[in-house]
Simulated assay, not measured.
Amino acid sequence: MNACRLCPRECGALRLEKSGNGYCRMGTMPSVARAALHYWEEPCISGTKGSGTVFFTGCSLQCVFCQNEQISLRREVGKYLTPKQLSEVFFHLVDQGAHNINLVSACHFAPAVAEALSYRKLPVPVVYNSSGYESIETLHMLEGLIDIYLPDYKYDDPALSKELSNAENYVTSARQAILEMARQTGPCVIDHEGLMQRGTIVRHLILPGHTKNSIAALDWMKENLPKGVLVSLMAQYLPCGRAKEMPPIDRRITEREYQKVQSHLFQLGLEGFVQDRASARKKFIPSFCLEGLESFE
């Protein structure tokens, strides 16, 4: 039982296997809420057969607007798995035809995830799907095990990250993490079927009332991302959890906000993906009912 320093909060929590008193409130043993094919990532990730997504319970960031609040904030659903069992989950998804294994919010279980990935080499790429709030030391632990990094760059304003994610150091931490991810993977490699095999895609979610934040985030990416790193501009924001009572994020983004940020992306010449506003629907939020974990006691 060691003092945890896995994420940039460095809270020093003492974590047992199935309990912990840190910010994420989780133990060291991975808790998984869903392991199933997912079809709503970027086209080069989901492909035609789906991405093998493994949703972990808990989160070290815990944004007030999180669409997965059932598992990230309230931690209502989750089944504990050993690293060996987690490896079995990965291969079961491969057997279903998954184009890749997509680890969603795995930071707080990084040592166990690294162990699971080391049991047997997967025949498909491994995707690390992250809030961007990662420590360099944890990313070094994962080096060589991750083929594709899929981080967010949520904020370019420390005051906003403090207000919405209680993480004033988000901007500094995410910038360092994203550049380290890009170093590890190098430029994006997409095969003849349009599927990503290696690389980094940086996501940014447009928040209602905060287009200045989005424009500043895109400016930083233009100035700092290495060549070959793609950008994904997301418009799927829905007011969830506490955000429903927090203007201006208590609504969806407007067409004007969407067009303003999208136009800036095009002006900068950033390569990647743009999500349509029609993606802001509840039907695209996964259900968390331990799908794919039925065979584990």
Rank of each mutant, 00 (worst) to 15 (best):
H108C: 05
E291K: 15
R251V: 01
E137H: 11
L145W: 07
T254P: 01
S130T: 15
K244G: 06
S161F: 10
G209L: 09
E76P: 03
V113G: 06
R203G: 01
R183V: 00
Q62V: 10
L117C: 03
L164F: 15
S72E: 15
M141L: 15
G132V: 11
C4N: 06
K84D: 09
K162H: 14
D191R: 07
K222V: 01
K283E: 14
V171M: 02
G209C: 05
Y155Q: 12
C7T: 12
K49P: 02
R198A: 02
F109W: 12
F91P: 02
Q262Y: 08
L37A: 02
P226H: 04
A216Q: 11
L61G: 04
V124P: 01
G228C: 03
E180N: 01
Y153L: 15
Y149W: 08
A243S: 15
N224K: 13
L139V: 02
V202N: 01
A167G: 06
K162S: 14
D152M: 13
A278M: 14
G52C: 06
P43E: 07
A13S: 09
E223G: 01
R74Y: 13
V261W: 07
G209N: 09
V126K: 10
R120H: 11
V77E: 10
F55W: 14
A13E: 02
G97Y: 08
E115K: 15
Q184K: 04
M181Q: 04
Q262D: 08
K162G: 07
M141S: 11
Q62F: 04
T254C: 07
E163F: 12
H140G: 00
L233P: 00
E17C: 05
H92V: 00
L145P: 02
H204C: 06
A182F: 01
E257I: 00
G194Y: 12
G20P: 02
N166H: 15
